[in-house]
Each structure stands twice: as C-alpha cells, then as structure tokens.
C-alpha cells in the first residue's frame, strides 16, 4: 500500500531521469550564465574566505557559498558563520552574509590573469564565443 501511495505521489527510490536532467541543467546554466567555471568558482570562494579570515574568526563548519540564479540573474550568495566570541557562551558568533551579482561576459580572460597567481591545476579553458 505504501508502495502504491509512493508511486501515486511520484516518489520512487530511483530518481527519474527527468529529475536528474533538471539538476544537471540547472548547474550548467548557472555556470553558463555567469561564465564562472566550477573551478573558478572554487578559486573565488577560497580567495573571498581568505580575505574574510584576515579580519574575522570564521566557523569553518558552516560556510555556505554558492551561485544562485534569480530571474535569469546570477548571484554569488555567501553565508559565513563566525566563531563564538566566548566559547562558553550560548550566543553564536553572528554571521557574515552577502550577495554579489555576477553578470555574464565580464570575467577577465585567462591571459589577463597571468600576473596574478593561479592554481596550476586550473586548466586554461577556451574563451567562450563572445556575442
């Protein structure tokens, strides 16, 4: 019976291929629109955190930085919890949150970056065709 209800509600132990397609597409659309490759995104996250660590003590457990699409605009959304001021206190340390709009087609190309230090594992990607 439970099985029947599950089927009726579209639940299934196996994810349906359309659902997987949607998840894969959502991910790829976010990177297409922002032109931030997953590798670049990771790099940017790490650098942003490095800057914040200079000034705050971060609670490393709860860091959440991701790209979100809202009405076809991309935002880098960060939610970074801070370490407790007093470890014995019940109060948490507060958090840093921000939303950075990341428009498409304004990223510096790989060649512009040759002066800054880049992760050697980050493969140079061909420039996307400009519109």
């Amino acid at each position: 019976m439970a099985n029947l209800i599950d089927r009726f509600l579209g639940r299934s132990s196996q994810p349906k291929s359309a659902k997987i397609a949607k998840e894969r597409l959502q991910f790829v659309l976010v990177t297409d629109r922002s032109q931030l490759s997953p590798e670049k995104l990771r790099q940017m996250q790490a650098e942003i955190l490095d800057v914040i660590r200079k000034y705050y003590r971060i609670n490393e457990e709860g860091i959440d930085i991701k790209i979100e699409s809202r009405e076809r605009e991309n935002y880098l959304v960060a939610d970074i919890p801070l370490a407790k001021q007093n470890p014995n206190s019940d109060e948490d340390g507060g958090r840093i949150g921000f939303m950075l709009q990341t428009p498409a087609q304004t990223l510096k190309s790989e060649s512009d970056e040759s002066s800054t230090e880049t992760d050697a594992s980050a493969e140079a990607e061909p420039d996307p065709p400009s519109s």
Binding site: G10, S12, K16, S17, A18, K19, A21, K22, L25
Partner: peptide
C-alpha cells in the same frame, strides 16, 4: 514520457 518522469 513526462508522466513517467523521463522527460522534462
């Protein structure tokens, strides 16, 4: 296919 969950 949509009903079956195999098409967006």
């Amino acid at each position: 296919l949509v009903k079956r969950g195999d098409m967006l």
